[in-house]
Structure formats: C-alpha cells, structure tokens
C-alpha cells in the first residue's frame, strides 16, 4: 500500500511537470493580435493561476493526509466530523475568489459587445461547406473555399505546410481598423472562429450576430469552423490577411474592378443569351408564318 502511495505522488508530480514543460507557444491559448484577444488571454491565465493556487492548497492537504495518516503507519482515526467554522470559511473564501474573477470578466465582456464605430463592416455567411464574405460598404463579395487538394487529404500527395488551413480567397482587412462582423448562415449552424483575433461567433440561420476586432499586426491568421455543420465540417477554414491601409485600398480597388468587370461580362453574356433567345423566337415565328 505504501508503494502505491509513492507511485501516486510520483505520477501526479510527473503530470504537473509535464504541463510546465509544455507551457510554450502552440500549447497555450494564442496571445493574439487584437485588444480583445489580449484581454481574454490575460483573463485565461489569471484564472489558470488561481486554479493552480487552489490546486496546490487542496492537493497539498490531500497528499499530506494520504502520507501522514496511513493505517499501515499505525494512524488512529480521529473522531471529529463537523465544524461550522471551517464550513463557513470554505464557503466564503471561494465566493470571494469568484467575485475577484467575475469583475474583469464582466468588463471584458462589455468590450466584446461594443461593436460601435467600425470602419469596415463584413457580412460573413456560413454555407455547407464554405464561407461567403461581403464587404457591405465596398461592394465586394466572394466565397472562400478550402484550397487543399483532395489528394493530400487522401494521402496520395505529401501534405503542405498549411494542410487544411488554406483557402482560395482569404479575407483581407486593414491593420489598426475596427472591423465589424455580421455573422449568419445560409443552412445549418456554423461558427466563425479565428483564435488569434479572439473572435468566435456562431453563424445561425435567421439571425445576424455581431462581433468585432482590431488587428494590430499585419500577417496571416488562420481559423476554422467551430460548430459541427455536417460531413465537411473540418474542411471550411478561415484565413484572414491583415495588411497596411495602402495595400488594403489597392486590394479593394482591384476587387471592385474585378467585380465590375465580372458584372460587365455577366451583363454581356446575359444580353447575348437574350439576343439568342430572341433570334430563336423570331426564327420560330418566321417558320410559323411560312407554314400559314
């Protein structure tokens, strides 16, 4: 029995040291690049340290008792079985700790809900299984699909660095500007989640949910759909490119041109099609005329 006790202590100390050894980036929540993601990170770490402190205290007493009061060591059981004082103590102290944690949480939550004064508004629509982005003020709209080739998924080709985290059309936003997201869905529930931005918002058919971010560093940030949405739930990633103001302007005008052009081509195609139909009808009419 003594042996198993030693093993118990050894095992859990190993567990905790393993946690410490792995507490490096890629293991923990990303610090992110937005004010909200920073706030969430700090709250997360604060709560983690509070839990560690409670854990050290609680498990400390437990492990001490398990070592000290073993029957094999001749420990005799005491007879106490209630004490109002300690009961009140371990009701009040945890409550106070919770109050201390609740205050910053309340403040950060208010911040998350403040979607006012945004420079850019993007409507994000979830589809089975892709995302559609509409820049409401710029008149840009496009779908964003997974660009990882099927061969990589089926192990017929070596997997690229950004396997499953790459798309054909990434979202492009300017750095240091408040971007408001209007998130909805066209079919089932999805969730738009980019950890580095500290944003996760469910996309729900019939509802438009709001969230926002200000990315403070240029770069490419990757996320995924966060709500089971069917067979290809794992295959609708989200890629955000944060670029400088100038680059964003260039991107916008390029895309608006493309949009105009494609609209133009569409119109052209449409009119050609119409002409063709008209021609056919005329032809038909002529035929009818001839017959009569």
């Amino acid at each position: 029995m003594q042996k198993s006790m030693t093993r118990l202590v050894l095992f859990f100390s190993l567990c905790f040291s393993a946690v410490a050894a792995y507490a490096t980036p890629g293991i923990n929540m990303p610090y992110g690049v937005t004010p909200v993601s920073h706030e969430i990170y700090h709250l997360h770490m604060a709560c983690f340290y509070v839990c560690c402190a409670i854990g050290v205290g609680t498990f400390g007493v437990l492990i001490y008792s398990l070592i000290k009061f073993r029957k094999s060591k001749g420990a005799e059981a005491a007879h106490f079985h209630e004490h109002l004082g300690v009961e009140i103590l371990w009701t009040v102290i945890p409550t106070l700790i919770l109050v201390v944690l609740a205050i910053p949480a309340t403040i950060i939550l208010k911040d998350i809900h403040n979607t006012e004064d945004a420079a850019i508004t993007i409507k994000v629509t979830g589809y089975q299984w892709k995302w559609k982005y509409e820049y409401l003020d710029q008149g840009i709209s496009f779908f964003s699909n997974l660009s990882t080739p099927q061969d990589q998924i089926n192990n017929k080709a070596p997997k690229g660095e950004w396997y499953l985290l790459e798309v054909d059309n990434p979202v492009v936003v300017p750095v240091n500007e408040k971007v408001r997201l209007l998130v909805t869905s066209d079919d089932v529930m999805h969730a738009w989640w980019v950890p580095e931005l500290g944003v996760k918002q469910d996309a729900i058919p019939g509802f438009i949910n709001e969230n926002w971010f200000i990315a403070t560093q240029p770069g490419t940030y990757r996320g995924q759909c966060g709500e089971l949405c069917g067979v290809n739930h794992a295959f609708m990633p989200i890629i955000i490119k944060v670029v400088s103001q100038d680059e964003f302007k260039t991107w916008v005008s390029a895309h608006q041109n493309v949009a105009d052009q494609s609209q133009h081509t569409q119109m052209l195609a449409l009119s050609q099609a119409n002409a063709a139909i008209l021609k056919k009808q005329n032809h038909h009419a002529k035929k009818v005329e001839l017959r009569s």
Partner: peptide, 29 residues
C-alpha cells in the same frame, strides 16, 4: 456566467469535506 461560477461553491464544499474526512483518518488503499 455568475450563476455558473456559483456552482463552484457547493462543489468546492464537497471536495473540501471529503478531504477533511481523509484528514486525520486511518487510511488504507
């Protein structure tokens, strides 16, 4: 959020009570 955090209080009481039961007992494994 507040209501959920409150659940920690009675749950904590239970954990502390179990540990207090073990404390100064005569334990076998």
């Amino acid at each position: 959020m507040y209501a959920t955090m409150l659940v920690a209080v009675p749950t904590g009481i239970k954990v502390f009570n179990w540990i207090a039961t073990i404390f100064r007992g005569s334990i076998s494994f």
